[in-house]
Write a protein that binds this DNA or RNA. Structure first.
Lengths: 307, 307
DNA sequence: TAAATTAATGGACTAAGTCAAGTAAATTAA
DNA sequence: TTAATTTACTTGACTTAGTCCATTAATTTA
């Protein structure tokens, strides 16, 4: 467990703050005849439409006995209907009745209004910042959601090139100890790409999910018949999602379509994961030569793919 | 109330998710002899050192009666000491005893461990993303905190240059409609800075708060007697914090110290906020000339400061 | 086919939290 | 200065929320 104390404390502080914040929001609903737990149950029923008691108990971490009693109360108040499930006759399918919806609606509205009031006090920029941040937390902590949203591959947009440089700089510094000069090289390469960009023969692919960039690759024209693959990178957090593979494939397909004869690339022997991708894609090692760059002793490699 | 429904729902969804998430974290502390509320009280005492019951009741939204009883229990268990306040003899000053600290410590540790386990499951990049996001939420929703943490100005580190390019690209695209070629220019300038960086006569300043970059400025050597200020930028979220002013001042101080005679800079007439800073710092407009760049009709300006 | 597991429930209980009323000190108004 | 009001905290009497154990019935696994 090598997580820094600072980070742990920062998260704990956030948790404490947000607990209070949500607590204050819920305060407003306190005058309702429903307890917070009851509200949460009604809310789940409201969104899910059909639910088993067991699902509810699990997703809200409730004692089944306690839940059972609450549901019983709801049923006798005419808020929900319970039907024996046909597939498993132990289970009971729960649904909110029309009456249930009618009764619950104002509280949803009240809850919405409370949130609206908080947002309303913020500027447009602050709202965006808040929502982006919440999205980031959701997608980081909620594994299920993360899997669900697909990785898309698109062309570059303003800001992307800088981001790619930023990530190369940070990542290679922390993982391989590369110094500034590496980031300088990346900035130069990427800057030149943008400057001289010829969409007919060149392309940049950005892999993203939920608005967060997961990887990149560039294809630049070297000469009439040769294209060069450059700046392939994949976020550590996105490993295992075939992001790198898909990016390389896009690159190869584009090179073929544009009638290049050869796709070449330069890399360093320590970048095992990337090299593995190149080999799999059919690239052949054509040259190898040691050099001292980025504050490190490295072995540069040139790989070619005949298209 | 003109807040969009989508945003409200997004916030509500986040609230629901995070409530569950924190609930799950607290589950682990459930086997302790303290209830969640008791924990929160102990935690407040632990950090604040000295506290009145009334403060506690307010900050944790507790019923005074309930709190009073909990405190009574804590006192008879030897966990806290209560002293009549000298300034107001109705109040009682609460402090955790040594014994209290000793007893409470393992639970703090347990809570830390739970958070550490969550973080541990994330990659470095994800951790950073998570913390940045939490920081963003805190600073947006908790106005008080925003003021409290100071902005620091430091030299550049790996990744920073890329970040600066990224932000220039995004920001100028969304605020002024600049196209790719602007980002290309920034990448070239910043890349060259890194490549030819001479610490004796050049410098980059990064303004940051809580690990988040708020602004930047570069000073590069133009010739023996002239230094150029480049790439000044300030995050929209950091406006009004004098970030830009402080960065420009750093720049001027450095230029003076290095015995430059003139500090020059090139900018565009639409960048009012920046120009205002330059004027305030004593720069004089020496040249102005229209140009078509970055997909826009602009008026370029050269400003000089005699040192 | 027996044994183990799961879904749901009731009984008996404890913990958590609330409300109204009171005391003593401090503050404000007259 | 004194009376009225407010504030900090406390106690008593309560309600609500939540837990634990045991049981029944259906389903799954061995």
């Amino acid at each position: 467990m090598a997580v820094s104390e600072d980070r742990i404390d920062a998260v704990r502080e956030f948790n404490r703050f947000y607990t209070k914040h949500v607590g204050a929001l819920n305060e407003g609903l306190l005058k309702s005849p429903f307890s917070l737990t009851e509200m949460r149950i009604l809310y789940e029923l409201h969104t899910a439409n059909e639910l088993m008691a067991a699902d509810l108990a699990k997703s809200l971490s409730l004692d089944p006995a306690y839940l059972s009693r609450i549901l019983k109360r709801f049923k006798s108040a005419g808020l929900i209907e319970t039907l024996r499930s046909v597939t498993d006759r132990r289970q009971r399918v729960l649904t909110l009745t029309e009456e249930g919806r009618r009764v619950f609606a104002p509280y949803i509205k009240a809850s919405r209004d409370e949130v609206a009031a908080v947002l309303d006090a913020l500027s447009e920029a602050e709202q965006t910042k808040l929502l982006t941040a919440m999205q980031a937390i959701l997608s980081t902590l909620d594994g299920a959601r993360q899997k669900a949203t697909p990785v898309i591959i698109r062309a570059h947009r303003p800001g992307d090139i800088g981001w790619v440089i930023h990530r190369h700089g940070s990542l290679y510094a922390s993982e391989y100890g590369f110094d500034d000069s590496f980031e300088a090289l990346v900035a130069k390469v990427a800057g030149e790409f943008l400057e001289k960009f010829d969409p007919a023969f060149e392309h940049c692919w950005i892999a993203e999910r939920n608005g967060g960039i997961l990887g990149s690759v560039f294809l630049v024209k070297k000469d009439k018949t040769t294209a060069q693959l450059r700046l392939l990178y994949v976020e550590p957090s996105a490993r295992g999602l075939s992001v790198g593979r898909n990016l390389v494939n896009e690159c190869i397909a584009f090179a073929r379509q544009k009638k290049y004869k050869t796709l070449t690339l330069w890399t360093n022997s320590i970048l095992h994961a990337a090299i593995h991708l190149y080999e799999d894609a059919g690239f052949k090692l054509v040259n190898e030569e040691p050099h001292h760059s980025f504050g490190q002793d490295l072995i540069g490699q040139t790989w070619d793919l005949t298209l």
